[in-house]
């Protein structure tokens, strides 16, 4: 009979008891722990929402007033319509939806951009597959050449990636 001194087992037994489980353990470790941990998770949701907000406020094609120069943060009330903003942001289908609530002076206006997604705003409250943001920005609204103080509430609805 042949024994291994270290483990005090027969060669065949040591193979069965030690080597086979170690191989399986290694495979499980590699498959379920090491390989998944090497996938880098790049969370760009916050950045995407910030880009949408900034486009709205800084771009001449979106809301920014221009009198030769573009004035970021100064909302041109004539540009506050869904068709223009949808074109400016280029949002359609299952990408992002934007809800804008503008309060200035005695006026209150709200619009929805890409209704396919903005209609799903109620799902933001649940811990589902939606990623939403809600930010209020202090704006000046240009109406008939007058600058009026107001607040623009920007709600962005998107899917979790």
């Amino acid at each position: 009979m042949i024994y291994l001194g270290l483990f005090n087992l027969k060669t065949e037994e040591s193979l069965l008891i030690l080597v086979v489980p170690i191989i399986f353990l290694s495979l499980i470790l590699v498959l379920f722990l090491v390989i998944p941990s090497t996938y880098s998770k790049l969370d760009t949701e916050e950045a995407t929402h910030a880009i949408i907000r900034n486009n709205l406020l800084y771009s001449r094609n979106c809301l920014a007033y221009e009198n030769g120069n573009v004035i970021p943060g100064l909302v041109d009330i004539n540009k506050f319509n869904p068709d223009r903003l949808q074109k400016c942001l280029g949002l359609k289908g299952d990408t992002y939806g934007v809800l804008l609530d503008l309060e200035y002076g005695e006026n209150k206006k709200n619009i929805e951009i890409n209704e396919v997604m903005s209609d799903r705003v109620n799902f933001c409250l649940s811990k589902g597959s939606f990623e939403c943001s809600d930010e209020k920005v202090y704006v000046l609204v240009n109406e008939n050449g007058e600058s009026i103080s107001g607040v623009l509430d920007i709600i962005i609805v998107g899917f979790k990636k």
Binding site: E46, A50, P72, V137, Y138
Partner: peptide
């Protein structure tokens, strides 16, 4: 795990707009 927090970064954000306005 990487994530961007653009509000923390220098640059153009809503807070800049608030101050400018």
């Amino acid at each position: 795990d990487f994530s961007f927090s653009p509000e923390k970064n220098e640059g153009y954000g809503s807070l800049d707009i608030n101050l400018m306005n």
